[in-house]
């Protein structure tokens, strides 16, 4: 048997190319190229951040504008008018209140259902678990228009008047997926031995859930609830298709933009933005404190 010469040749190839790389590494690129690279990286990074933040900055800045005419599109002069009188336009205020009501109800329902689903998906083995897992992420990937329109078709065909209830149903449908996916990550890290320990000590299942399981997965549930609240406030397409005569804040902005775009819209948007950042920071603070306490 004659040994094929290929391996030796290959090995030699590898060795020579490796040494070639080493030479390159030792010398490195010339200094001008390195500096150019650093500058290029800075430009790209800064540009990306600018791209992300300019729209937000514009929203905030224009909340202090006193527009000429009905459209807050062109900078005129600084003013606190919109901030001192945010509820000047009743329909805008009503829409905002309505949006918050919807968001509150959707958040509670989705948080409860989604958490229970997440626990079921992690803790138990059952038939069609994989199929359910796939269906669960479908609303996250399906075009909103499809989801919204199929729901509308359903409501129309059973002759169900569109309004608060149908909006809630529609939003819960996709929110549950977000909650279940977010909470599932937390539940995966849960030590089920703790539940056994609680049962062993005489704690019935429901008490075990309230005293042991829930407190330990709560950070995941709260994160999911905040996400749901934000998504609910923000959602347009699905909500619009299933809202009937009721108007949420995004719908109101959309419908009035033909006749008027007052700076109050920017005021509400800025307020929501500040509140979101505050909640996020509080969340980070609490998570860190808790992690220290649990030694995790």
């Amino acid at each position: 048997m004659s040994a094929p010469p290929a391996p030796t040749a290959l090995a030699q190839d590898a060795r020579s190319s490796a040494s070639g790389l080493a030479v390159l590494g030792r010398g490195g690129p010339p200094p001008w190229l390195r500096r150019a690279g650093r500058i290029g990286l800075a430009v790209v990074a800064f540009g990306t951040l600018l791209y992300l933040f300019i729209p937000i900055v514009v929203v905030v800045v224009f909340s202090f504008n006193e527009p000429q005419g009905k459209y807050n599109y062109v900078w005129n002069q600084f003013s606190l008018d919109a901030w001192t009188d945010p509820f000047r336009y009743e329909e805008l205020r009503d829409a905002l209140v309505f949006s918050f009501q919807v968001a509150a109800v959707v958040t509670v329902i989705s948080a409860v259902l989604g958490t229970l689903m997440a626990i079921a998906m992690v803790k138990y083995r059952f038939r069609a678990k994989g199929v359910i897992g796939t269906i669960l992420i479908l609303p996250l990937t399906m075009p909103e228009v499809v989801l919204g329109f199929s729901l509308l078709t359903l409501f129309v065909s059973v002759n169900w008047a569109r309004g608060f209830v149908t909006i809630v149903i529609a939003q819960v449908m996709f929110s549950v997926s977000y909650v279940a996916t977010t909470v599932r990550a937390r539940v995966r890290g849960f030590d089920w031995g703790l539940e056994e320990a609680a049962l062993d000590l005489g704690s019935p299942p429901w008490r075990t859930f309230l005293r042991v399981t829930l407190p330990l997965i709560l950070p995941g549930v709260i994160a999911a609830a905040l996400l749901t609240f934000a998504l609910s406030l923000d959602d347009f397409i699905i909500t619009y298709l299933n809202s009937g005569k009721d108007t949420t804040f995004p719908i109101q902005v959309w419908t009035t933009k033909k006749s008027r775009v007052p700076p109050q819209i920017n005021v509400f948007s800025t307020a929501i933005l500040v509140a979101s950042i505050a909640i996020a920071l509080l969340g980070v603070y609490l998570t860190n404190r808790r992690a220290k306490k649990l030694g995790a």
Partner: peptide, 16 residues
């Protein structure tokens, strides 16, 4: 939870 026996678990399972 209705039996009067208690367990010391291998990994202790203390409530963190």
């Amino acid at each position: 939870y209705k039996r009067n026996v208690n367990t010391v678990f291998q990994q202790y399972a203390l409530f963190p």
